[in-house]
Design a protein around this nucleic acid. Sequence first.
DNA 1: ACGGATTAAACC
DNA 2: TGGTTTAAT
Length: 669
Amino acid sequence: MPVARPQTHEARVIAHVDMDCFYVQVEQRKQPELRGLPTAVVQYNSWKGGGLIAVSYEARKHGVKRSMRGDEAKEICPSIQLIQVPVAHGKADLNSYRHAGSEVVSVLARKGKCERASIDEVYLDLTDAVESMLSVTPPETLEEIHEEALKSHVLGINSEDSAKENYVKDWFCRNDADHRDKLLACGAIIVAQLRMDVLRETQFTCSAGIAHNKMLAKHASAMHKPAQQTVVPASSVKDLLASLPIKKMKQLGGKLGNSLQTDLGVNTVGDLLQFPEEKLQERYGVNTGTWLWNISRGISGEEVVDRLLPKSHGSGKTFPGPQALKTIASVHHWLNELCEELSERIQTDLEQNKRVAHTLTLHARAFKPSDSESAKFPSKSCPLRYGTEKIQEDALKLFESGLRDFLGCQSETQEGRNGSWGVTGLSVSASKIYATPAGTSSILRFFQSGNPSTSSSKQESDQFTEGTIPLSPSGSESHLGQDQVEQTNRASSILRFFESGNPSSSSSKQECDHFTKATLPLSPSGSGNHLCQDQVEQTNRPASILRFFESGNPSSSSSKQEYVHFAKATFPLSPSGNESHLGQDQVEQTNRPAPEENTRANTTPRVGQVEQRTQEWEYKPEDIDPNVIDELPPEIQREVRGWLRPSKRPNTSKRGSSIAHYFSPIKKG
DNA sequence: ACGGATTAAACC
DNA sequence: TGGTTTAAT
């Protein structure tokens, strides 16, 4: 499964950024009075208090863990605040978290290559940014390094707690430093800045790891949480891996890791070192064997790919035990719900990112009387046609087809109650998503209003566009009033401090602390600094990022507002200069390109829509299907002819026509 | 027959 | 290719 990749000769600087209990933070931003309290996000409140999917660090200290039931959590930690995941279409609705994740990506993508690894994690390749920093302002020339960077944990440097800052600073600024260490030091400074940017612009804290490859960075980011960062110098890799349990290594959490333990007696990554590459290869194959040999030495050539958007969208739901669906009608109902959500998501993707999905896939889990365990419900896929109704129709067809396969020649497969098959899980997903050509224009509008043929789908689509679903995080931060200007002025001193350049003067630092304390009371009682307190105890030195949340004096009643305004008002002041007045909606745009970054597209995407820098696919004029062009409205035909060529019509047995299918992507180059 | 809902990617 | 399997969060 893992694939060995050659390592590039040049030393890279890779960061892994991981949001701290992300869903909790999202909910706490919506409801700031929850900040500092033991909090968990829970879904499906009905049964045993629902299942926890995110737990705040305050709650973790009481032993609350993910995948616990709400009831258990209450027993262990009676004061815990349980927040329900929003529900839409009769199922958990993760849109607000997706959106928040996009906000974060928008900030982090400003330096170097950025890969969205999950809803709350990204990898960054900072090699270029570091190289240029090193050539202009290497750490030893900086007259001051920001506190947050100095709070980095650096693996392998020995230090006493009291003097640690100095150790880190010394490590950063050593003249005799290994070149690779200098690279990492710059990386740490850049990452600290990015994390502060994230906090300032989204109100979320995150943790990070900085190392020479993805694997090491990933491990590092988890070592000190929350709101801290960890550096892995090459010299400390060996010790780090020597004691790392094999199952904790990415890709080894499952069967392969088990096999390593039971078959080879390997319990730590270090234990792998004694096996010759050939032995590993003959047991696990060339690829996996080589990969294992490499990772045990901290070698991993896996590249950070520039991808800010997901490659597929899915919507699913389980129907455990007694809830199993036993009639076609009930399957039909839930399929419709799932398809509705999926349709909305791909529609949004189209509108915001100009991407078109090409494949619809249905997965199901089911049981039947006869052979009780082994048989699996087959996945089925087909060309994806835009429009909720079409998706619903196709998904049902796929299900029925799958059910026939599943039941074989078993007797009753028809309407109404049945023998006793039951469906315990359903999901639909959209994949093979390609960017449409950069040129926007009428073709997109055409897509956006659904399918050409049916007027009903157009209606639906319009309806949706008007906002049946909340696409922006409903929450405190979205309303920014007329007093924005005032706030902007007010925040200017903070900006100077936070803004990357030079946190030089000590006066500006003071100003910042003062401001922070005066305006950021997060808890009504005046004891709003639980998070910080906890951290102090735990680490004995609160990161300055945590202090951001500290509230010395919950002074004014308007303080909460001020806080929100602060966060909103400061971000648009990126050094780009062209700050026109933003409407309320556009305030949410956080990812304008930084000035020095010329590699970026010139669009200014919104949050929730994330800019793709590289156009991996393009459409060629030869791409049009002559059978279909006539179905297009005349004014569009001209345009389409410009950049499409005919493609084989997928699966002619499927009736109906999806415009999407007349676009066949051509690999660039 | 509860750790749910997603995502990704390798394999055949 | 589509469909299956593994894995991670």
